[in-house]
Design a binder for these strands. Structure first.
Lengths: 190, 190
DNA sequence: AGCTAAGCGGAACGCTCTTCCAGAACTATA
DNA sequence: TATAGTTCTGGAAGAGCGTTCCGCTTAGCT
């Protein structure tokens, strides 16, 4: 999920614990919010709190790591979907995946805007990873002649996020239909 | 600042303490954020923590009360300004006052969107107090023939808030100039 | 197998939230 | 003004969480 890129590789158990903590934190952040007790996360991961603090000295480190892991997972879904489905379906499925990510992110949003400098680089990371991901899907679909060209992947990400913010307040199905509509709008008319 | 409207009037010392707590909370929220230690607020107000909890059992009660007090103060400034200045100047001054309020509110924003049901009624309170406040200033200026009629006070509040959100990131002076521009736009051309 | 250093767990400490109640302070009444 | 009755106050006490620290464990190497 996350590997350190320093000279010494991390010990196996350490890497295992980091992954377990990331999984646990993602889950706990979703249920109990970002201010959940550290022990709750450590317990769920099956490690002591000392281990948590060893790898993530500050809470913001953990939040950041969870966020990046989710961005990575979402970005990595793009090539996988592209391999399994035809271009437009892959794009559709990926955008749904992306809205799920946005829903998760909502819990982290207040933390992200808290002014902690640890989070300053995250928006750039977000665009840097997700932009190329949609970009490749869009290019593939456009190359197949299935959709019209889109000005910029970034605009699409932004538009979908706006769409899913307003949608969350009401019926979640409603948001899904709106997104489908957007994708249909991308297609060339017969 | 805030008075209880129940049958029994509040004891004098109690009312004094409530006001002191509100002042202190407003100040502390501004410097240390809404998660500041309760003791810090109590100390600044010159009361014990017990007193704080008596009047504001939940932290959200205090946040809400501070917010409402600020809304009230901002709304009450309208008639005062109207009495002292000619219509357009009063409107101008009040809008500047309003942007100051928005700046303060930013600290509370994350709390307001936290999903706590205590805060559900606040947006309505905001419009209910501030809408008529600008409304009366606009009407007075329009009646004096100084400005063109505005579709709705609510729209103006919304527009100014949008303006001041984008402005806060950069030069504060910049935002002030933009606001002045907006007010100038309201005037009838010679 | 034996050595070394990275990594682990959880006890312990300090800080904050929240409750509670004996006594102080205020108001109403005479 | 004096008194009774009530409200309100302050801070000690209990509980819970965050964070640190260090003796023990275990992976990785020879």
């Amino acid at each position: 999920m996350t590997q350190h890129t320093e000279q010494r590789p991390l010990r196996r158990d350490a890497q295992r614990n980091i992954d377990a903590l990331l999984d646990a934190a993602k889950q706990v952040f979703g249920t109990s919010g970002v201010d959940a007790p550290a022990k709750e996360i450590a317990d769920l991961a099956g490690v002591g709190v000392g281990t948590l603090y060893r790898h993530f000295p500050k809470r913001s480190d953990l939040v950041k790591a969870v966020f990046q892991a989710e961005v990575d997972a979402t970005a990595d879904a793009a090539p996988a979907l592209a391999a399994e489905h035809d271009p437009v379906v892959a794009l559709e499925k990926w955008l749904h995946r992306y809205t799920e990510f946005l829903a998760t992110k909502r819990g982290l949003a207040s933390a992200l805007h808290s002014g902690d400098p640890t989070f300053d680089a995250l928006p750039a990371y977000f665009i840097g990873r997700l932009g190329p991901a949609v970009g490749s899907l869009l290019d593939a679909a456009a190359a197949a002649g299935a959709i019209r060209p889109v000005a910029s992947p970034k605009d699409l990400l932004y538009a979908v996020s706006k769409l899913s913010v307003t949608m969350s307040d009401e019926d979640p199905e409603h948001g899904r239909r709106m997104l489908d509509l957007l994708v249909d709008g991308l297609r060339y008319q017969a």
